[in-house]
């Protein structure tokens, strides 16, 4: 039996009260469905967006003792742990930076991330250039762009020496169009 004939046989199709009841039931059903959907979806959305709204953590990580870095013109690659790795990160928790000791207390450090599209740049001590293997970005030893498509210089990282230990201040991945805070540069 279809709904129309059912309504006819029950004598409800012309009843104003029934129309009101149906209207109410329609709204109730749609409203509750929306509520069910919201309860199911909203906590999940908040959960997924957690990393986006989470306050970015910046910590100092040790990268070696002062004696490990000779005063010269050459950069050496250092690795350190991300500021807030998840427990299952494993080797992906590592980050890298190019570090050069300029004087007894002065260091120069750059993120290894190319400012074009994020590939890892390599330091070539012969020509004294950083080169990117992906799209051919080239930087001078002071981090400024020498050639290729990078729109910005390499990101400078902060270094400090505490009790003979050299530490680097971790940063989020330097994104080309979203410069970091002045304090990080």
């Amino acid at each position: 039996m279809n709904p129309e004939s059912q309504a006819e046989s029950s004598g409800c199709d012309a009843c104003e009260q029934c129309d009101q009841r149906r209207s109410f039931l329609t709204k109730l059903t749609l409203g509750l469905s929306g509520l069910i959907g919201a309860i199911m979806v909203l906590p999940g959305v908040a959960f997924i967006l957690g990393p986006v709204v989470k306050k970015k953590k910046e910590v100092w990580r040790p990268i070696g003792s002062l004696d490990d870095f000779k005063i010269d013109d050459d950069f050496s690659l250092v690795t350190y742990e991300d500021p807030s790795p998840v427990p299952w990160s494993g080797v992906t928790a590592k980050s890298g930076a190019w570090v050069r000791r300029i004087s007894d207390t002065e260091f120069k450090a750059f993120s290894i991330t190319c400012r074009h599209l994020g590939c890892p740049v390599r330091w070539l001590s012969g020509p004294e250039l950083f080169m990117c293997p992906c799209h051919g970005g080239v930087y001078y030893k002071d981090g400024t762009v020498a050639a290729g498509p990078p729109p910005e210089p390499l990101h400078t990282m902060q270094i400090r020496v505490v009790k003979g230990e050299v530490e680097i201040k971790t940063i989020p991945v330097p994104l080309t169009t979203t410069p970091l805070k002045e304090s990080d540069v």
Partner: peptide
């Protein structure tokens, strides 16, 4: 990250954090 206004958020959404990692 090059998307205007929300690029940085979008990038961190892809990473599941501020850098590439387990998430």
């Amino acid at each position: 990250a090059r998307v205007p206004f929300i690029g940085s958020w979008l990038s961190h959404f892809i990473f599941g954090g501020e850098t590439v990692g387990g998430s």
